[in-house]
């Protein structure tokens, strides 16, 4: 199993396409960081103006933690598209180059191949997220410094103490990994049915875009199906950045406002991964390899 996993990892990291995602993330994050460094104060001023001029907010609002949050808000919607570039290419790429039959002449079972390829895709996805974490969090902390995290939400503002922020990011990245693996599992399953990469890549992207639009529409008809869509749960990483309050409206340090929402989302995403991977194993074992 380790041998074929190594082979799969070698194949993934040999292709230039793999590095497009890493380059795209680096470019996007750098763009946001340069923008915030140059004009972050205007952004903060605009956000503070929404408090109605009633408050004096002192301290370093534009710090590494806030920059990282802004980046994640913008990027975590798009990273799934980058994940599909590799995930949806796993089997279809082999079918396209005619190496799928050859692959199955090895002494490893079809199930082992599916699991090895999926593990390789998971490793790629995790590395992409680690890269994202290094640039969005660590680099932002180095460039902008750290302080309390002052978050502007639609209906309220949250202030999280500096020593209470880092673990939330670790948890959020952990959650994001689960969400990205779900996306990878969708692309991975679709790649089994195609003989070239374009079809499953575009199909996976279309599913993500379609479900994302659906989950943002506040229409009663769609609200009933939203809880079952994996895309709806991909945004639950934000729950780590909301604190519980006491009766006197004091935020409780180290707390999460709705921890059960996170647990629910983790379960939904986990079930999606298991079902999609199970389906991939089942379909690949039944598949008539003609290419």
């Amino acid at each position: 199993m380790w041998t074929i996993l190594q082979a799969e990892l070698f194949k993934i990291f040999k292709r230039p396409r793999t590095y497009i995602a890493f380059a795209a993330i680096a470019a996007l994050i750098t763009m946001v960081q340069v923008g915030m460094k140059a004009d972050g104060d205007s952004y903060v001023k605009f956000m503070l103006s929404t408090l109605g001029g009633n408050f004096d907010v002192q301290g370093k609002i534009m710090n590494g933690y806030l920059v990282c949050y802004i980046i994640l808000q913008m990027l975590l919607v798009h990273v799934p598209l980058l994940v599909t570039l590799i995930a949806a290419d796993t089997f279809s790429g082999e079918a396209n180059t005619g190496t799928l039959r050859l692959l199955l002449t090895t002494p490893y079972s079809r199930t082992q191949w599916v699991l090895a390829k999926f593990t390789a895709v998971v490793i790629y996805t995790l590395l992409l997220l680690v890269w994202l974490a290094i640039l969005a969090l660590v680099l932002s902390m180095a460039v902008f410094g750290t302080d309390d995290l002052f978050l502007f939400k639609s209906d309220y503002v949250v202030l999280i103490r500096e020593n209470d922020v880092f673990w939330r990011y670790c948890a959020a990245f952990g959650f994001a990994a689960l969400a990205m693996i779900t996306v990878a599992a969708v692309g991975f399953l679709l790649s089994i049915f195609a003989d070239n990469s374009i079809g499953p890549i575009v199909a996976t992207m279309s599913i993500i875009v379609f479900f994302s639009v659906l989950s943002t529409m506040n229409i009663p008809l769609y609200n009933t199906i939203k809880p079952y869509l994996f895309v709806t749960h991909m945004n639950s990483w934000k729950e780590f950045f909301d604190e519980r309050v006491t009766e006197n409206n004091e935020a409780v340090a180290g707390s999460i406002q709705y921890p059960m929402r996170i647990v629910h989302s983790v379960l939904v995403l986990g079930i999606h991964i298991l079902v999609l991977l199970g389906a991939a194993v089942w379909f690949f074992r039944k598949k008539d390899i003609l290419s």
Partner: peptide, 24 residues
């Protein structure tokens, strides 16, 4: 004790399209 004004940010600015619950 003092009077406060309304606080509301468009969801397009906060990028929070999911339904949020108010804290109080």
């Amino acid at each position: 004790a003092f009077n406060t004004k309304d606080y509301k940010l468009p969801k397009g600015v906060t990028l929070e399209f999911e339904d949020a619950e108010k804290p109080a």
